[in-house]
């Protein structure tokens, strides 16, 4: 028998619930990190079922773009843009586009009710899903970057930068994807926004920035994936400017924090109407 005065958060445990008219004890909340881990694990398992073909598509698309541009671009700064743009494009495809679709679909299909009726912090759901989608991009991005280095004879010595670019660009783009998916009034719009975001990442990330008109250049500066692309492109330099790389990654991190916060707010708003 659990006394009615038991502090909130005490487990109801075995046995009968209080018979009093006093407020019954509340079951404990799920804590952020264990809940995040559970969501992450569940989302990762979905990859095996549903996402592997799409990961192939993402990688082939990026490798294909590099092969196409191989004939036009030979070495130098443009080659760095093409390779780093193509590598980050995999992240944009999965984290931005697919995550926007997933949350749009979840919201339209009433799937958010499942999470909303569990005592789980909204941040755990959003961050768990975003982290899982960012993880899906790892193999494709690495394969694309290595293939690009071979195709354009770029040095692979500093490819370890990917270890920072992937999670930070992943956070920024998946946060954006989650926010778009949760804020779009209709599922089709969420899909559309995700696809547009990916197209923007493709055009503005892969093409060398030097010849762009000013307006397009500004748009490029506004896109968070740009900073991931720049950081990776700088690392191909024989003597990389690490301060600039750090600054680029800092922008990714800031956008990631901001967009994940917005996505968490959007989730809360979408889950309880």
């Amino acid at each position: 028998m659990v006394p009615a005065q038991a502090v909130a958060g005490a487990s109801p445990g075995a046995g009968a619930w209080s018979e009093d008219d006093e407020a019954a004890p509340l079951a404990p909340r799920a804590r952020l990190l264990p809940a995040l881990g559970a969501v992450y694990r569940a989302q990762l398992s979905r990859a095996r079922v549903a996402r592997i073909p799409l990961l192939f598509v993402a990688t082939f698309q990026s490798v294909g773009i590099m092969v196409l541009l191989r004939g036009v671009v030979d070495g130098g700064a443009p080659a760095r843009s093409v390779v780093s743009g193509s590598a980050v494009l995999v992240v944009a495809f999965v984290a931005l586009n697919l995550l926007a679709q997933y949350f749009g679909q979840l919201r339209a299909g009433g799937g958010l009710d499942h999470y909303a009726t569990l005592p789980v912090p909204p941040a755990a759901v959003v961050l768990g899903a975003a982290a899982a989608y960012a993880s899906f991009t790892v193999p494709g991005t690495v394969v694309t970057a290595v293939t690009g280095c071979v195709l354009f004879q770029l040095p692979m010595a500093n490819l370890w930068v990917l270890a920072a670019v992937l999670p930070l660009a992943g956070a920024a783009l998946s946060g954006l994807g989650a926010a778009l998916g949760l804020l779009a009034p209709r599922q089709e719009l969420a899909t559309l926004c995700g696809q547009l975001g990916m197209s923007a990442a493709l055009l503005l990330g892969v093409l060398p920035p030097d010849g762009m008109p000013a307006v397009i250049g500004w748009a490029r500066d506004l896109l968070p994936s740009t900073y991931g692309v720049e950081a990776l492109a700088r690392s191909f330099d024989p003597h990389p400017d690490w301060v600039a790389v750090g600054a680029d990654l800092g922008v990714c991190a800031a956008v990631g924090v901001l967009s994940l916060a917005v996505a968490t707010w959007a989730y809360r708003r979408a889950a309880t109407r």
Partner: peptide, 29 residues
């Protein structure tokens, strides 16, 4: 969420999970 368990009409959130993982994850959450 801390007082009741709810079975809605939709299963979209769980569709791509195995039965065991769906149950375990829900328990964790």
């Amino acid at each position: 969420a801390r007082l009741l368990g709810y079975l809605g009409q939709e299963s979209t959130a769980l569709d791509e999970l195995t039965v065991a993982l769906a149950v375990e994850t829900t328990g964790r959450l």
